[in-house]
Amino acid sequence: MRAQILLITLLVLLPFPLFAQDEVVIPYKIKGYLEGIGNGKVYLYSYDKSKGLRVDSTRADNGDFVFSGVVLEPVLTYLLARSEYYSSAVSFKKQTPLQFFLENGYTFMIEGRYGTLDKAMVSGGLINADYKRYLNAIQLANGEKNVVESKLKNASDEDQLTLKKELKKANDKLFLQTIQFIKRNPNDLLSAWLIGNVVYKTSSMQVVEQCYNSLSAEVKQSAWGKKLYTQLYAYKTMQKGTMAPDFARKGVDGKDVYLSGFRGKYVLLNFWTSWCVTSRKDNIMLNNLVEQYSDKNLQLINVSLDKNLDNWVNAIRSDKLLGANVNAFFKDKEGKLAASYNVRTLPLQVLIGPDGKIIGRYNSAENLHKSLDSVLK
């Protein structure tokens, strides 16, 4: 199954620091009470694009708990709790987490009960107020989607086809209401987040650009707004016939790899990861293609998005990858190389001509093969 680069998995958007070096940052604070957890533990999960998954925890005192900290930018956060009365790991994992946005400088009040964390009351922060309005706006469509998804779990093979059509209609309705919310609320920072984490994942870049253009100038200058601009710019520079962004990276063998150093050759960029099954299958096909076109002046550069360098190196050895091998995150926590090529899904191959211009982008080695036959004939 093709790996999607998404919100908490891999939506590649460059992080922009929000704080100047001399700026005083006021930490956020969370004060909460959860009935039914006693002296259990409370957990906060969030995703930092430069550090990965972040987990914070604290011990409750008869249900009361406190968190404090600083975030690089407003971030969607998930809260879970482990009750001292229900120690089963199964009951812990079955919980639906509470979702809310953390922002520096605000105190957040949370009140709820164990077992129904997703229904807990949250107050505090500008974005959470907008988020509540958004959830209210999509409540009916979201409810329809949940009902159909529930029916699908126990549906017969005969009923599944009908229910899947109903689910598509519900998702289309939900998507349309999200677009309407964005365009009706151009001054909301949440609108930029929705574009990057809902519209971006499920629609074309043309729709993303339309939504971005509807944002106010102030929201466009926010960290989330700047990320969207970066992605749109990368998309526009990735079209057929445009110059491929140059880069320089250390190869796995320690040698420097410059894209411009291969000018005069056809260059094939292969974006992949060790954990993507489809990528690993494509690696085998790409090795075969390199050997097949060995007399056609073709250079393969494999660009891994692995953050674990040991997994990356082991996968290279296992797949016996030909060509140059570089890592997008080696000495670059932001992964600018992947962002500059607008990597949205894996695997991805980009074919570049001898003149340094992009010939095409492909989401499988099989599709690439058909293009190579015509280009390198």
Rank of each mutant, 00 (worst) to 15 (best):
M1K: 13
M1F: 15
L6I: 11
I8W: 03
T9K: 06
L10Q: 10
L11N: 00
V12Y: 02
L14I: 14
P15L: 11
F19N: 08
P27E: 01
Y28L: 02
Y28N: 00
G32C: 09
G36R: 12
I37H: 12
K41P: 03
L44I: 04
K51H: 11
R54V: 15
V55D: 01
T58R: 12
D64V: 14
F65A: 14
G69I: 06
G69T: 00
G69W: 05
L72Q: 14
T77M: 07
Y78S: 08
L79T: 04
L80G: 01
L80D: 00
A89D: 09
S91H: 02
K94N: 12
L102N: 01
E103P: 00
N104E: 00
E111Q: 10
R113D: 09
T116M: 06
D118M: 03
V122E: 11
K132P: 02
Y134M: 00
A137G: 00
L140K: 15
G143S: 13
G143L: 06
K145Q: 14
V147Y: 10
L152Y: 07
K153R: 12
K153T: 10
D159H: 11
D159P: 09
Q160D: 04
K164S: 04
K164C: 02
L167V: 04
K168Q: 06
K173Q: 15
L176R: 14
I179M: 12
L189V: 02
W193K: 03
T202D: 12
T202W: 09
V208S: 10
E209I: 07
Q210D: 15
C211D: 12
C211H: 11
A217E: 15
A217D: 11
E218H: 04
V219C: 05
S222M: 12
K226S: 07
Y229C: 06
Q231W: 07
Q231T: 10
K236H: 11
T237M: 13
Q239A: 10
K240L: 13
K240T: 15
M243E: 14
A244W: 13
P245E: 13
R249E: 11
R249K: 15
D253F: 09
D253A: 10
F262Y: 15
W272N: 06
C276A: 04
T278A: 07
T278Y: 08
R280Y: 02
D282C: 06
N283H: 01
L289Y: 05
V290H: 03
Q292T: 07
S294P: 02
D295C: 06
N297R: 12
L300C: 03
I301T: 01
I301Y: 00
K307I: 03
N308V: 01
N311D: 05
V313N: 03
I316F: 00
I316A: 01
G323S: 05
G323Q: 02
A324M: 11
N325T: 03
V326A: 05
F329G: 07
F330H: 02
D332K: 08
N342H: 07
V343C: 03
V343S: 01
L346W: 04
K357R: 15
I358D: 03
I359G: 01
L368T: 03
K377W: 01
